[in-house]
């Protein structure tokens, strides 16, 4: 059986660099070089910490989105969900000030509430789409509208502001530092590491890949497809709640315009990072890099006068399209099936 020869031939290690996996990293490096060239201030500690802190919001949400998308789903409701959760947190904390005072308890209860709401909202998205057999796109389009209008209702069309004293207690969650690193960045890192382990090293993560590649095969492999899919939405909800917990002390308010278009930024970060929109393949580190890239683009545009800041969205859009085109890799092959 001389297929042996063939096996041996391919057994020799390949030295080629995996451009597909490294692509987002290289693009980020290019952006950084560009940023430095445009303005020396780009590489200053203050600016970098600014970039990473801002990237943390979208990044944390995008880590959750990586699970949903890898398992073949989509969640359009994350931006509204974040607005709704922050609104609910503010209302509850403001009410608690009267009984518990503006201390740590109030903030902790607010945080716990956020987590419960996040998990609950995720579970709603997951259960309605799996048990109700409705496309996730439709379900989350619906909940997107529901969460958005709930926050508008809570704010009575205006803005909900966090009690000033509570804000003082809560402040370190966004502005604090540990070992010189801003807290949001540390949280982002922790979420990313946890996400990486969960997606790449556990049976759960493997099941997400399987479901995203072919649900039927997953079902025939004794995987509880509905359960795993619902879990990805719960993880997404949890990530949104964590991002919200960091976000509230920064703005100190919530209104109907909070978190608008975050879902698109999160999905963009995931896709730039190399996760496939149609499911079956996901990469947490890619997502992290994607989120940082999106923030960096905005930052660079802030530092230069060459392109108007108002064109931020256009540049981001362009980068997303180019990134996906490069990753698909077909452009290198002459012919494909």
């Amino acid at each position: 059986m001389s297929s042996l020869e063939r096996r041996e031939a391919s057994a020799s290690p390949r030295f080629s660099i995996d451009f597909k996996a490294l692509g987002p990293f290289m693009a980020l490096v290019v952006l950084f070089v560009l940023g430095t060239a445009i303005n020396d201030a780009f590489l200053s500690g203050g600016n970098l910490s600014n970039i990473f802190t801002r990237a943390a919001f979208i990044g944390i949400i995008a880590v959750g989105a990586t699970f949903v998308i890898t398992a073949g789903g989509i969640d359009l409701s994350v931006g509204s969900m974040a607005a709704f959760i922050s609104g609910a947190m503010i209302v509850v904390m403001n009410t608690l000030v009267e009984t518990l005072g503006p201390g740590l308890e109030t903030v902790l209860i607010g945080i716990v509430l956020s987590i419960i709401l996040g998990i609950g909202a995720g579970a709603v998205n997951g259960l309605v789409s799996t048990k109700g057999k409705i496309e996730a796109f439709i379900v989350t389009l619906g909940t997107m509208g529901i969460y958005r209008s709930l926050v508008t209702y809570m704010a009575d069309g205006g803005t909900l502001s966090l009690d000033f004293e509570v804000r003082g207690t809560y402040r370190p969650v966004y502005y604090g530092e540990l070992l010189g690193i801003p807290v949001p960045v540390l949280v982002f890192l922790a979420v990313a590491v946890a996400g990486y382990v969960l997606l790449n090293m556990t049976p759960f993560g493997r099941k997400c890949f399987a479901i995203g590649s072919n649900e039927q095969v997953a079902r025939y492999s004794a995987i509880h497809v509905d359960r795993v899919k619902t879990m990805t939405y719960v993880i997404q909800g949890l990530c949104v709640s964590i991002a919200t917990i960091i976000y509230v002390p920064r703005l100190g308010s919530a209104s109907s315009s909070t978190g608008v278009l975050w879902e698109l930024e999160a999905i963009a970060a995931v896709i730039i990072g190399g996760t496939m929109l149609k499911g079956g393949y996901g990469r947490i580190w890619g997502t992290v890099v994607g989120a940082i890239m999106l923030t960096t683009i905005g930052n660079i545009l802030n530092l230069t006068d060459a392109i108007s800041n108002y064109l931020n969205g256009a540049v981001q859009g362009l980068i997303i399209i180019v990134a996906v085109f490069l990753q698909r890799g077909d452009w290198r092959r002459k012919k494909s099936k």
Binding site: P203, R206, K207, F209, A210, S213, N214, Q216, V217, A218, R219, Y220, S221, A222, I223, G280, Y281
Partner: peptide
């Protein structure tokens, strides 16, 4: 192809999928 194997993956995850635990 339709319900047996994950065609876009390599052998290892396919082999162990049913007996993952």
């Amino acid at each position: 192809k339709g319900s047996g194997l994950l065609l876009n993956m390599d052998m290892r995850p396919n082999l162990t999928l049913l007996a993952l635990e």
